[in-house]
Amino acid sequence: MSWGLFIWFAAAAVICWSLGAYFAWKGQGARVYLFTFLGLAVFFAFILGMWISLERPPLRTMGETRLWYSFFLPLAGIIVYSRWRYKWILSFSTVLSLVFIWVNLFKPGIHSKALMPALQSPWFAPHVIVYMFSYALLGAATFMAGYILFFRKDKTAAKELNITDNLVYVGLAFLTIGMLFGALWAKAAWGHYWAWDPKETWAAITWLCYLLYLHYRKTSPGKWTEACLILLVAFVCLQICWWGINYLPSAKGFSIHTYGN
């Protein structure tokens, strides 16, 4: 599989996801699942093809993690849809996925076969995949929080908050698993499970933000404005942890988590 084929696979997947989103608006359940999963299968086939031709999991560069993010967004979307039957969720996840596909078409990153020894570990794939899935869920939670804050502000939004809470619970669970897999891997690679490397520090910050949200929702269930604001801040921290770290003066030249984009 070569990168040149990406545009075709991506186009086919986006068309399938758009059809799924369209049928969600029409309320035709079976077709929603059919087309969304078809799109996911097409997109995953490309990832798998890249995996085989690169002879390593495509998880090293930013472009490669964006690939997974584009895949997990519609997956998170269909999970939310299956639980709450939101008509719009699949349109949202498709558009967001398209944004990341778009970025990848213009900035694919380098896709060489080289995988430095530090990344050759059985922990590599689970660590990054779990993180990307959690980012997709928490991205959806952020979107819900923004929707509640800016569009539903004068109504009670119990149902929306319930969805947001659920997304954060599951997202935080995956975030925790991703972080702890990282710790177990770090022990095998560098001799210590936690070294307060800038990437680790920001992972801890992100984790604490979502922890704060959960505890705040438990103690002050009525104060949803503040809760939603916490989620917006949390997502900024998540972005810093994911890619912002490459531009942060505190991390430049200090982080061992830079693998050349």
């Binding site: 639980r83 119990a158 319930n162 969805i163 809470d165 619970y169 599951v170 669970a173 925790t176 698993i177």
Partner: peptide, 16 residues
């Protein structure tokens, strides 16, 4: 890790 699994399976609030 076990707690994280519980978080998604048992602790998330029931859907409305």
């Amino acid at each position: 890790l076990a707690g994280a699994l519980c978080l998604m399976l048992f602790m998330a609030p029931k859907p409305i």
